[in-house]
Design a protein around this nucleic acid. Sequence first.
RNA 1: UCCGCCUUAGCUCAGUCGGUAGAGCAAUUGACUGUUAAUCAAUGGGUCGCUGGUUCGAGCCCAGCAGGCGGAGCCA
Length: 466
Amino acid sequence: MANVMDVRSALAASDELGQRISVRGWVRSRRDSKAGISFVAVNDGSCLANIQAVVPATLANYEKDVLQLSSGCAVIISGVLTVSEGKGQALEIQADAVEVVGWVDEPESYPISKKRHTFEYLRSVAHLRPRTNTFGAITRVRTVLANAIHNYFFAQGFQWINTPLITASDCEGAGELFRVSTLDLANLPRAENGAIDFAQDFFGAQSYLTVSGQLNVEAFCLAMSKVYTFGPTFRAENSNTSRHLAEFWMVEPEIAFADLNDDAALAEDFLKHVCRVLLEQCSADLEFFAEFIDKQAIERLQHVAARNFERMDYSEAVHVLQNCGKSFQFPVQWGLDLQSEHERYLCEEHVKAPLIVMNYPKDIKAFYMRQNDDGKTVAAMDVLAPGIGEIIGGSQREERLDRLDARMQEMNIVGDLWWYRDLRRYGTVPHAGFGLGFERLLNYVTGMENIRDVIPFPRVPKSAPF
RNA sequence: UCCGCCUUAGCUCAGUCGGUAGAGCAAUUGACUGUUAAUCAAUGGGUCGCUGGUUCGAGCCCAGCAGGCGGAGCCA
């Protein structure tokens, strides 16, 4: 085999012209010319573009192999990298060897045909959809975005905390929990009162998959100052929407000696940074999204990167909504949570930009959020993005033990949070953080509409087939 | 969980009044061409989601179930 290159490198390798190389990948299409050549388009996932191999009919296995190639076949093609005589591409390979590594059984029923498919259909062949242009592009953007997130925090001196996926705490926040157990479901151990005896379970207590790493990451925040978690989280809620997954990835930074304004500033700087990185490093894939998925894809990123986010108190948001002259399906009243339609109006029509709404009524927010001096609100914020709604939710945390205890009592929080309380007993300090749904951000930056299409294998109620 | 819509060829969809099934694309074969989601021609391809009911007769009407999609709620 000659010098093996991935397609991305080969197409960028003008300095390798005239050299013999090999590329390895999967056939996207084959076009035969009776001039005695076939054109084979090969993609290996390294970039959006295919490389075109020009295969002469004089190859020994031309009839036997090359003329049998169909979409999806795995091949290794070797030949000299040359300037293309055709118009669709700058470079191509003049093939002198074609090795078919894997054939496609029954090309007629190969699920990924050259024609465009609906995303709904592609979800039913999730094991093969990475072979499409769209899912290749999503996968590359996902990788660059994950890297940009880690790199941003690393450059800012944050520590990456690998918070546990299994938890015995059932009050991490909102959300139904998936139970984790090794008990025999057909023969559950019982205590004397008939209740299931979880003391005999693996962890000696009821345990669950985490719905958030926040409480754990706070512990590291109050030692390492700037920390974040980035990993999978699980919600057993029966949510059937294009914005919810039962298993999704979440980014949760937490900063010490910080208040809500610091938190909002971090969220804005963070989002601007990752958008800039995508614009720099994913230009070909973003152009693809702009052409085939969402015309606004690139402008939106430029807009986020360039423009200052608007900020508005919840009370002001309510005032704006009540006086905008629009009628909403759900009521707008101080004390009620903002509905999707309200959030969308605010960021899409009122400010026409990302918007940070701050200081919500305490009764609609979580127990750990810091109570403001007005006695009515807590230091919570939501970052609302046009077209997608809430993309970040965060808050300054209640660092005063007496206030935290009072709030937990008021809200009837039961469960063993002694260690979380300890953080307020030993060197407590104002701190704040937020949670960002990774797939929601991916939806936002690619213009994809359904969250099930930006994660490799989506898990939603009644469906985890792959 | 609630509301609405959908389920017919590998894919996307038609299917009239209830009378035994149709197109485009894909696939296969051939023609043609430094081709570009090539083009042209021919050919093959169906348990009409499942179960039951009404009917002489059901893709079509009725009931139940399953699955999918969109929206809402919950949230990230």
